[in-house]
């Protein structure tokens, strides 16, 4: 059941990305090109998604627990630390170069363009490296 519903959730997310045009890195890069080919569509994606989630979360949280797990696990940290800022900055640079963030990278995979075949394994390697660095820091602390 978890697997079927997990798959369905991912499928819905992917269909949303495709309908929104966000599966096309050219459209993302044109959003980011504010003084050039500016295409403001991405702002409407973020607006529609964040507003839907804002309302939906509040309805869901009225129920004390999720349907398939024992508890809600919601981030509790409030501090603005160096990792948050450095990580977001590096992500922003990579996003600006390639036009892919992690979701659209997955939906682009089956189209198997040379660009995504270079990007996706590198993204996974970058994630593994960051997990290694974080883990080593924890062990040394």
């Amino acid at each position: 059941m978890r697997l079927v519903l997990g798959f369905a959730s991912g499928l819905l997310f992917g269909l949303g990305l495709i309908l929104a045009g966000m599966s096309n890195p050219a459209k993302v890069l044109n959003f980011l090109d504010i003084v050039g080919a500016f295409d403001p569509s991405l702002a409407f994606v973020m607006g529609g998604a964040a507003l839907t989630t804002f309302i939906g979360y509040r309805l869901v949280w009225r129920r004390g627990q999720p349907l398939l797990m024992s508890d809600f696990q919601i981030p509790t940290r409030k501090d603005i630390d160096r990792d948050l800022l450095t990580g977001a900055a590096l992500f922003g640079i990579g996003w600006g170069i390639g036009g892919f963030c992690p979701g659209p990278a997955w939906t682009a995979l089956p189209l198997a363009t040379p660009g995504i075949l270079a990007f996706l394994p590198s993204m996974l390697a970058g994630m593994a490296l960051a997990l290694f660095v974080k883990g080593r820091r924890l062990r040394m602390a």
């Binding site: 590096l90 270079a118 970058g126 660095v133």
Partner: peptide, 19 residues
């Protein structure tokens, strides 16, 4: 694209999230 992938992967995990 390799550089972009490394930055996106490393950055999103270090910064605890993406878009």
């Amino acid at each position: 694209m390799v550089l972009a992938g490394l930055l996106v992967g490393f950055g999103t995990v270090l910064g605890s999230g993406c878009t």
